[in-house]
Simulated scan of single mutants.
Amino acid sequence: MYDFKTEEGLAAPELYRELHNAADALTTDESDAVANMANVAALMWEFIPQLNWAGFYRMGATARGESELVLGPFMGRPACIRIPIGQGVCGIAARDMETQLVEDVHAFPGHIACDAETRSELVVPVVKGGQVIAVIDLDSPDPARFGPEDATGIEALAELLADRI
């Protein structure tokens, strides 16, 4: 049985260090990508306060063979299933292979609203062999919820997971 909990009110660096350690413990000996994404989505939901969505979009393909993001394991309300590369916060992160830290999603050109309650978003690409294989997506109902420390923490998590999903 796993019981990963963190103290309330931890500073961001310590919170993300504990999240990273828990994710490492859960995924280190597991080869199934879906199982690892599911457990990490649950960990993010448990560890990171003020979220209304936490999870993954995996790299997939349309019926015509074009790359797109496909919904992966997550915690939160139902979400958009497919996101074209270059569209919305997730699609831009995948296209540019860069973290997207959005204080106000309503001011983000081309934002795809899966949940009207979302006000801010953090999306981090998971890169393996120079290619995006997934993105980690965190949404919050609070404006400007995410900052540089959150981005750094999730980027470290993405690096850890690159060979595990």
Rank of each mutant, 00 (worst) to 15 (best):
A22P: 06
V105W: 01
Q50D: 14
T118I: 04
M37R: 00
V123D: 05
V127I: 12
D142M: 05
A42Q: 12
P78D: 05
F56V: 02
Q131V: 05
F146Y: 07
L157H: 05
N39L: 05
L138T: 13
G91R: 14
E8P: 14
A107M: 07
G60V: 01
E117Q: 11
A22T: 07
P73T: 00
S120K: 09
N21A: 13
I92H: 13
H20E: 12
E98V: 08
T152C: 08
S67F: 07
V124L: 08
T62A: 11
M1D: 15
A134T: 01
H111Q: 04
V40C: 10
A134D: 03
G65L: 14
D142P: 10
I112D: 10
Y2D: 14
T118P: 05
V70M: 08
R64K: 13
M44S: 11
A107P: 07
P84N: 12
H106F: 14
E103S: 15
A38R: 10
V70E: 07
G129I: 02
A25F: 12
V127D: 01
Y2W: 13
D29P: 06
P143C: 03
E98R: 09
G88D: 08
Y16Q: 06
P148E: 10
C90V: 09
N36I: 03
D142K: 05
S67Y: 06
D163G: 14
E159W: 01
E30G: 10
A94C: 12
P78G: 14
G86D: 11
V123Y: 05
G91E: 14
C80M: 04
Y16V: 05
E7M: 06
N21H: 06
Q50C: 09
L161K: 05
L160A: 04
T27A: 11
A162H: 15
E68S: 11
I133P: 03
T152D: 11
P141D: 13
Q50Y: 06
R58G: 05
E8L: 04
D104G: 13
G147Q: 06
A42E: 15
E18N: 06
V34M: 07
E155Q: 15
A41H: 01
A144H: 15
H106G: 04
V40G: 08
I92T: 01
T99K: 12
D139N: 13
C114F: 04
L69Y: 01
L10Q: 12
A61L: 15
F4R: 00
F4Q: 00
L19H: 08
R145H: 12
L122Y: 04
I154R: 08
A158K: 02
E159M: 04
Y57D: 07
E117Y: 09
C80V: 07
R77F: 06
V102K: 02
A63W: 06
D115K: 00
I154Y: 02
V126E: 07
A107K: 08
A134M: 00
Q131A: 12
C90G: 03
S31T: 11
H20T: 11
A41T: 02
N39E: 11
F4M: 00
A158Q: 04
T28C: 11
G88Q: 02
P73D: 01
F108P: 06
D32G: 10
